[in-house]
Simulated assay, not measured.
Amino acid sequence: MVVLLTSFFDLQSSPSLSLQVAIAAVWVSLILLIAWVTNRFVNSDAELVRKIVHIGTGNVILFAWLLNFPASVGITASILASAVTLLSYLFPILPGINSVGRQSLGTFFYAVSVGVLVACFWHLQQPEYAAIGILIMAWGDGLAALIGQRFGKHKYQVFGVQKSWEGSLTMAVVSYIVCSLILLFTVGNVWQTWLVSLIVALIATGLEAFSLLGVDNLTVPIGSAAFAFVLIQLLS
């Protein structure tokens, strides 16, 4: 996907701000439409709908990175999304994503992590690390939850939160793939990529295991991005 987008857009000349916002809005609208159709017409549980939104919206970071969105767009979107998600815990604004009174702030933390990573790594002119953090959260955590719930037969607990080894293995594998693909595209050094991706995958898996109140939606993306960035600087 990265290669296709890169070949289609000239990274030296960004689209206008209005076009950037329109592209992101269309993508998010498409994901919400898919989630609504799934919830309305497919016999599925609420968790599948949440993970469709969780995985799909996370990919917006690719558009932000490859189309050179200004940091202000990502930060503003994060603030607005954070406000909406907080309200949705009190009112049925996002009934398919948050349940009123649900004992988790995961969606809120997810929105906050996007703003934090964009603010940090756009300032450093290293947006690929923000992409690593958000995509590990989106794909790794999302697929880990789905695989764990459907196929997780070997359970363990971390501070009272039940996990499965099948889900954790999925988290590790997906995190490794996401990190290695982005680092190969940006850093290019093969041995650094394999080593850093392995370490980041293990760290992300450990952080995801501790998910009390959905805090992993904050610690996983920020931790993954930070460790990937620091390790690459140390090994360069």
Rank of each mutant, 00 (worst) to 15 (best):
C179S: 10
L212T: 01
L33D: 06
Q126W: 04
T193E: 06
Q157C: 10
S14K: 12
V114N: 01
M171Y: 09
M1T: 12
V60D: 01
N39Q: 15
L207D: 00
V2H: 12
S13Q: 14
K51C: 04
I52V: 14
G188I: 13
F41G: 06
V196Y: 00
Q20H: 05
L231G: 09
K153V: 09
N189L: 11
S18G: 13
A22Q: 07
G96C: 13
L66S: 03
V118Q: 02
N189F: 10
D216N: 05
L135P: 00
Y129C: 12
V116C: 10
A138S: 13
S197W: 01
S164C: 06
F227K: 06
A226Q: 06
Y156P: 12
L135D: 03
L48A: 09
I97H: 04
V112F: 02
Q125N: 14
T205L: 00
F91V: 14
N189P: 11
S175E: 07
D10E: 14
A226N: 05
L218W: 02
V26S: 12
L67Y: 07
D216L: 01
H54Q: 03
G133K: 02
N217M: 01
Y129L: 11
L143Y: 03
T205Q: 00
L33P: 05
T170N: 08
Y176G: 03
A145E: 01
P70H: 08
V190G: 07
S236T: 13
A77G: 09
G96T: 12
L5Q: 07
Q125S: 13
N217E: 01
S99M: 10
S13C: 11
S175P: 09
L183T: 11
V174E: 07
L80K: 10
I136V: 14
K163N: 15
Y156D: 14
A83S: 13
G74I: 05
I232K: 08
G140P: 05
V215D: 00
I177S: 05
E208F: 00
S180R: 12
L86C: 15
S78N: 13
S78T: 10
P221Q: 05
F63R: 04
L94N: 14
T186V: 13
L5D: 06
I177Q: 05
L198P: 02
T38I: 09
A130I: 08
S197C: 03
G101K: 11
A225I: 07
F151V: 13
G133N: 01
W122E: 06
M1Q: 08
L87Q: 08
I61A: 02
M1H: 09
I79V: 14
W139T: 02
V173T: 13
I222T: 12
